[in-house]
């Protein structure tokens, strides 16, 4: 059989060629399957269920009276009157370390894990396409970050409803809105926090393209997040605060005021977008030029 004959026969047996979009979603499904079926990642999501529930029980048992002057005192005050505030409280607390950790694990592992195990050379020889693989990897990180936020809020809402009264929501600005509007605001807050996590995920994917060791990548992302939070609390460099990657994470409380402080929210989303674009560009530049020797 000549090479040309072999080629024709090969194509006849290869079946129909899918569209580029369908093929991209097939790879994304495969990637999401890997991420969500991995025991370690499932354990992380389980932690995100347990923590808000535990928080709710502890607060219920200590029955907060409020006015203790702590940083979350206003949220604590509100919680006694409405279980929905457990969602805001849980997000506020978990955003300092646990949510960034969860995103850092999945993002830091995304490329480094495949490089470390050598599977990346088989994906690229297929060829999966370096840009295409990166886009799928990052999308999976964003989806996992969103899932993490939904899990936290879902668990907190369920625990809040079980442990505290639920009804019309009195916002931080003093206005009272119906429960349905309160839940709608919870939804927007979840999406806003997920956007912040997506920006962190972009940093994580970029770091992940630099090494074959996922643990190193994960630790680096976490150090970046914590260092940024620390710097955000140093008043001497307050001029730099708005440019820190974590600075706008907690600005979701703008959605708990009436009228909603859209300027702050847009600043936050702009910051997340800029971080995502910069770090995805770095990741792309690195991955598309790197020699794959693992």
């Amino acid at each position: 059989m000549s090479a040309a004959d072999a080629a024709v026969a090969a194509r006849a047996r290869a079946g129909r060629r899918p569209s580029a979009v369908a093929a991209w979603f097939r790879l994304l499904r495969s990637e999401l399957g890997l991420v969500f079926r991995r025991r370690r990642n499932q354990a992380l999501l389980a932690v995100l269920v347990v923590l808000p529930v535990t928080l709710g029980i502890v607060l219920r048992l200590s029955s907060p009276r409020g006015g203790d002057g702590g940083p979350n005192s206003s949220l604590l005050d509100q919680l006694a009157g409405n279980g929905i505030f457990l969602a805001f409280l849980a997000l506020t607390i978990l955003l300092t370390l646990v949510l960034p950790l969860v995103v850092a694990v999945v993002a830091g592992d995304s490329v480094a894990g495949e490089a470390g195990s050598g599977t990346i050379r088989y994906l690229l020889a297929v060829p999966a396409g370096r840009t295409r693989l990166l886009s799928v990897k990052y999308t999976a990180v964003v989806v996992f970050g969103l899932a993490a936020c939904i899990v936290v809020v879902g668990a907190a809402l369920a625990a809040g409803a079980a442990l505290f009264p639920v009804g019309p929501v009195t916002l931080l600005s003093g206005t009272t809105v119906p429960l349905s509007e309160g839940l709608l605001r919870v939804l927007f807050i979840t999406l806003y926090v997920a956007a912040g996590m997506a920006a962190l995920g972009a940093i994580g994917v970029a770091v992940s393209t630099l090494t074959e060791h996922s643990i190193g990548a994960i630790a680096t992302v976490l150090v970046i997040a914590v260092a940024s939070e620390v710097a955000d609390n140093v008043p001497q460099i307050s001029a730099a605060h708005p440019y820190l990657p974590t600075h706008w994470w907690l600005s979701f409380d703008a959605l708990l005021r009436s009228p909603i402080d859209t300027t702050t929210l847009l600043h936050g989303l702009l910051s997340f977008g800029v971080y995502a674009v910069i770090f995805l560009s770095l990741a792309w530049a690195r991955l598309t030029t790197a020699d794959i020797t693992s």
């Binding site: 790879l27 088989y122 396409g129």
Partner: peptide, 25 residues
């Protein structure tokens, strides 16, 4: 080099999913 937690079959499905010219059917 494959994913240790997946079966042989699932590993091949992963490789095939990466191929944009392969027919999933």
């Amino acid at each position: 080099a494959f994913y240790p937690q997946l079966s042989g079959q699932a590993n091949l499905a992963r490789v095939d999913a990466a191929d944009r010219t392969a027919d999933p059917a």
